[in-house]
């Protein structure tokens, strides 16, 4: 099932349980985002685009995968919008689009032998698409 337009936004709102209508466009989320420079679309744009009913570009962009899930945006949002949950919803929608969603990290990253198991498990959850 391909989700687009208003239907996509409705799905994002359902999954995230985020009240995007509360966003007052202050941008404190983006100002707090440690991955701002890596992202094509920033946390405040996630909120804005989802509330405007046209967020297809967010599904096509890889911005959601630049997020470190540090939750700072949601913590500091004065309106309780929780942009991090919107980002997570996009990751989830993408993963659910296909039955064989997967994540294959480069072999080289394991070379140092020190990587904690938790990192791999987290990456599987966050990067599967």
């Amino acid at each position: 099932m391909e989700c687009k337009g208003e239907a996509l936004c409705a799905e994002v709102i359902r999954i995230s349980a985020s009240d995007v209508g509360k966003c007052m466009r202050c941008g404190k989320c983006s100002a707090s985002c440690p991955s701002y420079d890596e992202m094509e679309y920033h946390p405040h744009e996630f909120a804005y685009m989802v509330s405007s009913g046209d967020a297809d570009a967010l599904l096509e962009s890889d911005s959601a995968y630049k997020c470190v899930s540090c939750l700072t945006c949601s913590e500091r949002c004065p309106c309780g919008v929780a942009p991090s949950r919107l980002v997570e919803a996009f990751r989830i929608i993408k993963a659910r689009e296909r039955s064989n969603a997967a994540f294959a990290p480069e072999r080289s990253v394991f070379d140092d032998g020190e990587i904690p198991g938790q990192a791999l498990v987290s990456a599987f959850r966050k990067f599967s698409k």
Partner: peptide, 19 residues
């Protein structure tokens, strides 16, 4: 236009992060 996210004291100055 944009709210400041964090103010980080850095040496004698303050680093203001905003977008």
């Amino acid at each position: 236009k944009g709210m400041v996210g964090k103010i980080t004291p850095d040496g004698e100055r303050l680093n203001v992060s905003a977008s």
